[in-house]
Simulated assay, not measured.
Amino acid sequence: MVRFKNRWLLVEFLPISAGLNTHALEEITSKHIWAALKHSVITHFGNNGWGAVGSSLTIKYFSPRTNLCIIRVARDPHKIAWASVTLMATIDGRKVIPHVVHVSGTIKQAQLAAIRHNREVVARYRARAKTPVGYQDSYEQFLQTSVQEIEALPD
């Protein structure tokens, strides 16, 4: 028996907005991301590209709080999906810059990469604020909540 082999893309969508509105993607759902990704695949790779990717493409996780998304796609056409994510400019009319953080063969590795990425982002914010190492702030709660959300994903 041959199992279905996947690739898991961990993508961060960086919103482009006027001002410091960091919650620009709060109303975005995984359905919006899937539709935008479908549009990108068809635009850049045509119906053949969508035929290769479409049957296996799934948005497994999206957090509007962290703007992280985990996308599942079949192993063979995963480069088409990767390129299409990179070429996306908008999601539901909101301008974004997609950043593929990690590509893995299992969802567990994508989850671990997402947790690691969140910790790195928080460390950068703390370094900018010049906070001491043992300082307790709202980022601790943020990290705990995001870890719980990511680890709750079914395998």
Rank of each mutant, 00 (worst) to 15 (best):
F62M: 06
H99R: 15
S40D: 03
A123S: 13
H32T: 08
P77G: 10
S146L: 00
R72P: 03
A83R: 13
K5Q: 09
Q111I: 08
V96P: 08
T86P: 00
T22Y: 11
F142Y: 15
S146E: 15
A110E: 10
V96M: 07
A83E: 07
K130W: 01
L25F: 06
V103D: 00
R7D: 00
I97Q: 11
K31N: 12
T29C: 01
L20E: 13
T66Q: 03
H32E: 14
L57F: 07
A127L: 09
V147K: 15
A89L: 03
T131L: 15
F45M: 01
S138K: 10
F13R: 11
G93H: 08
I107E: 09
V122C: 05
I97Y: 11
T29Q: 05
V133N: 10
T29I: 01
Y139C: 02
H23F: 12
Y139H: 15
N47S: 12
I80T: 14
Y61H: 14
S63Q: 06
L14G: 00
V11I: 15
Y125I: 04
K5S: 05
C69D: 03
L9F: 06
R128L: 14
A18S: 12
H39I: 02
I150G: 04
V103F: 04
K31D: 14
I16S: 12
I28H: 03
N67E: 05
A152G: 14
A74H: 12
S30P: 00
G54T: 04
A18D: 13
V85K: 01
N48E: 11
V122D: 02
S55D: 11
A152F: 07
A74E: 06
L10S: 09
T145N: 08
A24N: 10
I115S: 04
N47Y: 11
G105D: 08
A24R: 10
P15N: 10
E12L: 03
I71A: 09
W50T: 08
R72D: 07
I59C: 08
L25W: 10
T90I: 01
L153D: 02
S146R: 09
Y135W: 14
A81T: 10
S138D: 13
G93Q: 07
L57D: 10
R126C: 02
P132F: 06
W50V: 05
G105W: 01
L25T: 08
G134V: 01
R3W: 01
K108Y: 09
V85C: 12
N47E: 13
P98C: 04
S56H: 13
I28A: 09
T43Y: 03
C69T: 13
S30C: 01
S55M: 09
L14H: 11
G93V: 05
Q141Y: 09
K31V: 07
Q109R: 14
T106Q: 02
R126G: 07
R128T: 10
Y135T: 08
L153W: 08
V101C: 02
A52P: 00
A110V: 02
T29N: 07
V96I: 15
V121Q: 14
E27P: 01
T22R: 14
K38M: 13
A35P: 01
V101P: 05
S104M: 04
C69P: 01
M88N: 10
D155N: 14
A152V: 04
D155S: 12
I150A: 06
D137C: 09
K95T: 11
K38Q: 15
V122G: 05
H39V: 02
Q148P: 00
I91G: 08
D137L: 03
V53P: 08
I91L: 03
H44R: 05
P15T: 04
V101A: 05
E149D: 15
S56T: 15
A152M: 06
